[in-house]
Amino acid sequence: MAIPASVFNPPFNIVRLSHIVLTVTDLKASRDFYVDTLGLQVTAEDDRRIYLRAMEERGHHCLVLERGDIAVAQELGFKVTDEEQLDRAKHYFEKLELPAKWTEVPYQGRTLRTRDPQGIPLEFYAKMDRLPAIHQQYKLYKGVRPLRIDHFNCFSPSVLDAVRFYNSIGFRVTEYTATEDTDELWAAWMHRKGGVHDIAFTNGSGPRLHHVAFWVPTPLSIIDLLDVMATTGYVANIERGPGRHGISNAFFLYIRDPDGHRVEIYCSDYQTIDPDHEPIRWGLKDPQRQTLWGAPAPRSWFEEGSVFANTPIRAADLQATPIIAP
């Protein structure tokens, strides 16, 4: 499998992933989950939306919960370096004949709404309201003590097409999964900020959101969260883990919020800053690919995800089956 060469002078400069907007059907139930159980901090709220940030973040929000009749995923947000890069982004998406329009977003400056070629709704901005630092206010730490948003993972009907597009706007592949027999691309992890990934793509019907992940201090934070969830009515929301990924080397836990949106709790991956970082290849049938300790993921992990609002879904081009837990 030939991974596209990295593009070090992309058409516009993305700094990192920034935030996600999720529509939820019960704002109070979601608040109980994300604030009281996980430990994200409320920065603003009304009867329609709750804005949340993690403990190390200075930006106003990394997660927006928006009340609606149907639980769906909305925009995936990314920060660019400055206003000029925002103009360049608009020009680039217009050149590709993709939707690109300015929109007013609370607590953000000028914001560009668009979609990638597979239909994932995207949002780019250069400035967001800045808040005082709270990372040393230890009295606020609770739940799993989330420090920052870490990445998105999306089901893609063509992982190769997704990689080609995100490669063209400056994302670099760190690890990938290929089929053993035909060497076709089944999944890929791509970054801007110097970790293993800001966004990843997994083969499957889509586009759909697979999960959003939050970085936490240590694996012990995850163990503490499991104890809390087990004694506060959230046992059924624990989907997979805890464990250590083969891909990324990260310690992980997958849980589901009250509407079924999947959240990964994540720590301990590695740096990928060097421009000559070589992507790591994994075989689809390697039992250590999913979990270094060999435990396979459940079927729900490969089949269930959050639909993006107003986004058609199509079947995956590649028909290949990973190892699935019985």
Rank of each mutant, 00 (worst) to 15 (best):
D116I: 14
K127Q: 12
A178K: 02
L140K: 13
K95H: 13
Y125K: 03
L112R: 01
I169S: 11
D183I: 13
Q137V: 07
T177C: 15
D183G: 12
A178L: 13
S158W: 00
W186S: 14
V105L: 09
A188H: 05
V159R: 09
F171Y: 09
P99T: 01
Y125W: 12
K142F: 04
A133Q: 06
P146R: 01
E123V: 04
P99D: 06
P117N: 06
K142P: 06
A187P: 07
R113P: 08
L140M: 14
K127P: 04
F152R: 04
P132T: 01
T111M: 12
Y141M: 10
H151P: 12
P121H: 00
G143T: 11
T114A: 10
Y92K: 10
N153H: 08
F165T: 03
T114F: 01
T174R: 09
A126F: 06
N167Y: 00
R148H: 05
M128C: 09
Y125F: 15
E123H: 01
E175Y: 00
V105R: 05
L98G: 04
E104C: 07
T111F: 03
M190T: 01
E184P: 11
L96N: 13
T111P: 13
F171K: 05
P117I: 05
G109P: 10
H135D: 13
P146C: 02
G109C: 06
Q118T: 02
I120C: 14
N167Q: 09
M128T: 11
T179I: 06
Q136K: 08
F93K: 03
A126P: 10
Y138S: 08
E94S: 12
Q137F: 00
A100I: 04
Y92T: 07
A133S: 08
I120Y: 02
R172M: 10
R130Y: 00
A162I: 03
P106I: 10
S168K: 07
L185N: 11
E104N: 13
K127G: 04
H91G: 14
L96S: 11
F124H: 06
P146Y: 00
